[in-house]
């Protein structure tokens, strides 16, 4: 074998990569060419050139950008929590389960409108996300499906104290629970990136699927897979 053939082969691989698509995920916005700009605007490329020449020129010069969100899985454990106050009984299972001990719950007797006959009002519900490692064991521990992982992750700021999620923050935050450990949401085809679940009733409660249900889902999955392959 002639010496140098492997080197040439390696250069062939890089050349193939050069001609192939780029796998860079651009964030938070994406530079687009004229075709991409037209596609984003929802019109054809000639249409863009004639109707909006300035935009087309910007796209040709490489200035045009469109905002993108990275694709996330529904189970993505975000950098925040979603909490339904009405469901929380203040049992502090989450606080006990937390490996780092960063959940602080203070309850007082005499709450109103509590679920399942409890009569505790939650005075404090602080989660220090600055120290949290997002293992989501608290979500797993919650017996009433009151605490969920959130899907948000753009929570950078300059002050450590701002990372502490207080009760007010949790109530005010948009409710986009992750489907992590919440199979009922997965079954209802809910996506945290498309909709919010402001009402606790929408979030549902988890009931263990029967073996029959599981079998049905699994067999159907397999069947569709095979039909695609065929």
């Amino acid at each position: 074998m002639i010496y140098g053939l492997g080197l040439a082969k390696g250069m062939g691989v890089t050349l193939k990569t050069l001609l192939g698509p780029s796998f860079t995920v651009q964030y938070p916005d994406r530079r687009v060419g004229i075709m991409g700009a037209a596609k984003a605007a929802g019109i054809s490329t000639p249409g863009l050139i004639f109707k909006r020449p300035v935009k087309a020129l910007r796209a040709v010069l490489g200035f045009e950008r469109i905002a993108v969100m990275p694709t996330q899985a529904a189970r993505f454990r975000g950098n925040e929590f979603t909490w339904y106050e009405d469901r929380c009984t203040g049992c502090a299972s989450c606080a006990k389960y937390c490996p780092l001990g960063i959940i602080k719950i203070v309850t007082a007797p005499g709450g109103i409108n509590m679920q399942e006959g409890e009569s505790y009002a939650i005075e404090t519900f602080d989660i220090d996300t600055g120290r949290c490692m997002f293992c989501a064991l608290c979500v797993e521990a919650c017996p009433y499906d009151a605490l969920h992982m959130g899907s948000e992750f753009e929570r950078g700021n300059y002050v450590r104290m701002d990372l502490v999620l207080t009760k007010e923050d949790l109530i005010a935050a948009p409710k986009r629970p992750s489907t992590w450990f919440r199979p009922q949401m997965e079954e209802s085809a809910y996506s945290p990136f498309a909709e919010t679940l402001e009402d606790m009733k929408q979030a549902g409660r988890h009931e263990t699927p029967s073996v029959e249900q599981l079998t049905k889902r699994w067999v159907e999955d397999r069947r569709t897979d095979e039909s695609v392959e065929d």
Binding site: L15, T17, P21, S22, F23, R31, L61, G62, F63
Partner: peptide, 20 residues
């Protein structure tokens, strides 16, 4: 830019047109 493309990346494209 070229190294980026050889590696399947985009390369610098943030400052100015095409990252120039």
């Amino acid at each position: 830019r070229l190294l980026g493309r050889f590696q399947g990346r985009t390369g610098p494209n943030r400052w100015g047109p095409f990252g120039l």
